[in-house]
Amino acid sequence: MNYGQIYYADVANGIGCRTALFVSGCTHHCKGCFNEMTWDFNYGQKYTKEVEDEIIESLKPSYIDGLTILGGEPMEIVNQKEIRPLLERIKKEVPRASIWIYSGYTLEELTDASNKRCHGEDTDAILSMTDILVDGEFELDKKDLMLRFRGSSNQRVIDMKETLKSGKTVLSKYNDRDRSRM
């Protein structure tokens, strides 16, 4: 897996101050994508053990709320192979850190075991360690700058813990509009 960028004090991609990992590789190719250069799976730098160590260390200060993984597409099967061990390590070494994942795949696509495009042997484990999933492709005709933590109105901010507990999709309290800009 490659990555395009890591922000170690990001406040735009989730609640609080976070580390944000922008992975490379995406097959969605959404029109109007803000990060088009990350569509290329070879873009950026190689994700290594040393990079993972830096991410883990960045999550340890008490003012860091967690990790956000976006891209590119974190839930491409090839990227899941690296993301799962990272999340397992976070849950072991920094269990208070929340995990946010942005995916162009919907929750329904990710949980459909017959969908080999995005559901693989690591998918269920990744979802079980995810606190918030922002799902759905960016749709330029549904772009809305008033939405919190998403770019278009078709996308959802899903509370994965409650969703997995209840067996039905539970939207997060962050799935609303940004009232501070109104």
Rank of each mutant, 00 (worst) to 15 (best):
S98L: 11
I69P: 02
Y47E: 00
D112K: 13
N13T: 01
Y105A: 14
S114R: 14
G4E: 04
Y43A: 14
V11Q: 11
P61T: 03
V157W: 02
K91E: 01
N42F: 10
E162P: 00
E73I: 08
W39H: 14
V170C: 09
D144W: 07
H28Y: 07
V11N: 10
T106A: 11
R117D: 10
L140K: 13
L87G: 08
N154L: 08
K49P: 00
Y47T: 01
H119N: 15
G32Y: 07
D124W: 03
F138C: 05
G71S: 13
P85Q: 08
Y7C: 07
K142S: 09
C118I: 04
S114T: 15
D40I: 02
V94A: 10
T163V: 06
S172M: 07
N35F: 09
M160F: 05
M160N: 06
C30F: 11
I132H: 02
S24R: 11
I158L: 07
D124I: 05
T163D: 06
H29S: 06
V78A: 07
P85K: 11
D141G: 00
K31W: 04
G71F: 11
R148T: 05
D176E: 14
E76T: 12
T68H: 07
K60L: 09
H119V: 01
V11S: 12
C26L: 10
D40Q: 13
V11F: 12
G167C: 09
A20V: 15
L59T: 03
C17F: 12
E76H: 03
I64K: 15
G151E: 12
S103C: 09
I6G: 01
L59A: 04
M1A: 11
H119I: 01
M129R: 12
E57H: 01
D135P: 04
Y7Q: 10
K46S: 09
S172P: 02
Q80M: 06
D65Q: 14
V157N: 03
E109R: 14
G72T: 04
R181M: 12
L110V: 02
E54A: 14
C33D: 01
G136M: 13
L87W: 03
S103E: 05
A113S: 13
P85G: 03
